[in-house]
Simulated scan of single mutants.
Amino acid sequence: MNMPYWFNEQSGEPLFWVKNRPVYLTGLIIIIHCFTFIIGVFAAAFDFSSWFVELSFNTRSVLLHTKIWQLFTYPWIHTPSLAFALDMLVLYWFGHDVEHAVGRLKYLLLYFSLIFLPAVLSLGLAAINPTLSGIMNGSDLIHFSLFIAFTCLFPSSELFLGIRAKWVAIIFLALFSLIDIASRSWMHLFWCWCSVAIAAYSIYGKNISHFLSPARLKIPIRKPQKSKEQESASLFKKKTEGDEAIDAILDKIAKKGMSSLTKSERAALEKARIALLRKDQKK
């Protein structure tokens, strides 16, 4: 199996720890979104809604009145609703695995690409056709696109009722597209597909160009390989040592709970979880 070109073998250290619990970049992003959501709730309660309009992304406002800051502020403007909780759950469930797989810096680049690139492309579309305009706020499409990135990394992972991730992604993408078509929300439809394309290309883009490259026609140089007996013995040793370590951690959890784990034990458990996802991917 060919791994996506962003795949990172190193899990990376968390940004910081809170009571022996690791906090990664995804967790920090969730904290920021929750903070801005609370601000929005109080702004709505005190009828201070003008800020909502000024900070949301509006193609006409940016093109005609050069309100460039809207390119930065719109993802953090949330309408008070229960949909925000679902949005954060999607980010928590899938964002962390994407961050773990591609690495912190590349994950951050992907996140901000999903913020800026669809907005800039929508401005270009609105400039070409002034009848098309749109208003955008919130981060639901950003986090849905992170789910698409997760699906590109682990398409065979089982999610709801044993359905594989790739089919869940196709179903939801089709539903979102049909809803936009029914409501004639052409700009939102364009934004949605741009975001999905960016997420998919960020994972598989280089693999596609490599596949089409004439260099693939060259005969690869074979490196000297170990004998099958040596490879089997080495692999068995690694698996045995790893299984024993994980068994000891699971036994500790059963006796003392998750809070008893050390930083290194949590990191080992996380690596084992990602390894299982990769194993499911190979099936």
Rank of each mutant, 00 (worst) to 15 (best):
T66I: 10
K67Q: 13
I68V: 13
I68L: 03
I68P: 14
W69R: 13
W69D: 10
W69C: 13
Q70E: 02
Q70M: 01
L71F: 04
L71Y: 07
L71C: 12
F72I: 11
F72P: 07
F72T: 06
T73A: 09
T73R: 04
T73Q: 05
T73N: 08
T73I: 02
Y74V: 03
P75A: 02
P75E: 05
P75Y: 05
W76G: 11
H78N: 15
H78Y: 11
T79H: 08
T79Y: 15
T79E: 15
S81A: 05
S81I: 07
L82K: 12
L82Q: 10
L82C: 14
L82A: 11
A83R: 14
A83G: 14
F84H: 01
F84C: 02
F84T: 00
A85N: 00
A85H: 05
A85G: 06
D87I: 12
M88C: 00
M88Y: 02
M88A: 08
L89Q: 08
L89V: 08
L89H: 13
V90M: 05
V90E: 06
L91Y: 00
L91R: 01
Y92I: 00
W93T: 07
F94G: 02
F94S: 02
G95C: 02
H96I: 09
D97T: 07
D97S: 08
D97M: 08
D97H: 03
D97K: 07
D97Y: 15
V98S: 01
V98N: 01
V98T: 01
H100V: 11
V102C: 07
V102L: 01
V102W: 02
G103P: 08
G103F: 01
R104N: 10
R104A: 09
R104T: 07
L105G: 10
K106G: 13
K106H: 07
K106L: 13
Y107E: 08
Y107I: 05
Y107K: 01
L108H: 02
L108K: 03
L108A: 04
L108D: 08
L109R: 07
L109V: 14
L109F: 09
L109A: 07
L110C: 00
L110N: 03
L110A: 02
Y111M: 03
Y111P: 15
F112K: 10
F112C: 12
F112G: 11
F112H: 06
S113V: 04
S113C: 12
L114H: 04
L114E: 00
I115M: 05
I115P: 12
F116E: 07
L117F: 12
L117C: 03
P118N: 04
P118F: 08
P118I: 04
P118Y: 04
P118M: 05
A119C: 06
A119F: 06
A119T: 00
L121V: 05
L121H: 03
L121C: 03
L121A: 09
L121N: 09
S122W: 09
S122A: 14
L123W: 03
L123N: 00
G124I: 06
G124V: 04
L125C: 07
L125Q: 06
L125P: 10
A126M: 06
A127C: 14
A127R: 06
I128K: 12
I128P: 11
N129L: 06
